[in-house]
Design a protein around this nucleic acid. Structure first.
Length: 302
DNA sequence: CACCATGTTCCTTG
DNA sequence: CCAAGGAACATGGT
């Protein structure tokens, strides 16, 4: 679930649940997810601290906490990696199989579950320094995008995954945005016309905004089903599924008909990752080719 | 067994 | 020095 929209939805739902809660105890099952923060420092720093605010930066969750008797805020950075989840659970509920960190809050516990352990929960804030502008903020605009794309010869799809260009776009939404903008994922970044850059700018924002408004891509279950003790978790929620794949127009649709022209969606490998696109709607031809293909005025040859 | 997977970082190559 | 590509990380699904 971890691209900007999913993290944004998670943050909005989690923020009121953790605010005001204080950490009674810290359990670390996988010290590596704290790196480079030492386990001892992590536990000692957080024990007794109280959550104040929760915000998002790119795909990162930014937890602010206060330690009793101090004035300086404490910040803990979270990242879901590929398979991470963060939720509050009843203390009587059994912990999941892959649970790198648990924060005991008293009657509840904050659970960080991550089957692949690519996620992070750390006191090291340095990753934030390398992030580009938030795509939904004013700092991100067509001129900014144009200037920065001109300096890169990477395929535009690969460039969109560069978090220093714009923070939060991942593999799914990169393909979705390019499909909407009708730009080939193979087009070199510096080759985009300004018109294409403007379309891409709008597409990126639309795709992310719609995903946030849709609640998130992957089906969510914030309420729990009563049988489990999960008060909040990501996962397929019976009855509320279907929204995910239906909103994606090209991602993971190789071989299926393009929703716009019926051509078969294709998949290709770029920088080791899959890209999906419509070979017709996103053909290599630039918008100008339409004009160039028009029959030219012929020279008078008589 | 083979290949695929929503991400980031480190190392190598050119 | 910089850009770009690939492997590594770790586990599970098909």
């Amino acid at each position: 679930m971890p691209e900007l929209p999913e993290v944004e939805v998670l943050v909005r739902h989690l923020e009121p649940l953790v605010r005001g809660q204080s950490i009674k105890q810290v359990l670390v099952n996988r010290p590596k997810v704290l790196a480079p923060t030492p386990e001892g420092l992590f536990c000692e720093t957080l024990r007794g601290a109280r959550f104040t605010t929760l915000t998002r930066r790119g795909k990162y969750l930014v937890f602010s906490l206060m330690r009793p008797g101090t004035k300086s805020p404490l910040v803990m950075l979270g990242h879901l990696g590929m398979t991470g989840r963060m939720y509050l659970a009843n203390t009587r509920a059994p912990l999941p199989r892959h649970c790198p960190v648990v924060l005991e809050l008293g009657n509840q516990r904050f659970v960080f579950e991550d089957t692949r352990y690519f996620g992070r929960l750390t006191l090291d804030l340095s990753p934030l320094e390398a992030l580009g502008p938030e795509p939904l903020s004013d700092a991100f605009h067509p001129q900014y995008l144009a200037t920065n794309l001109k300096r890169s010869r990477q395929p535009i799809k690969v460039k969109l995954l560069d978090q220093s260009l714009v923070a939060g776009v991942g593999n799914i939404y990169a393909s979705e945005a390019l499909f909407r903008a009708r730009i080939s994922p193979r087009l070199s970044a510096h080759m985009l016309t300004f018109a294409q850059t403007e379309r891409l700018y709008r597409s990126i924002r639309e795709v992310l905004l719609e995903a946030i408004q849709g609640g998130s891509t992957v089906a969510l279950n914030f309420s729990g089903n009563g049988k489990t003790d999960g008060l909040f978790y990501f996962g397929s929620a019976p009855g509320t599924s279907a929204s995910y794949e239906e909103r994606l127009l090209v991602y993971d649709r190789a071989g299926k008909p393009c929703f716009r022209c019926q051509a078969s969606i294709r998949r290709l490998q770029q920088a080791g990752r899959s890209s999906y696109f419509c070979p017709v709607c996103q053909g290599k031809a630039s918008p100008r080719s339409k004009l160039l293909k028009q029959p030219r005025k012929r020279k008078q040859t008589n």
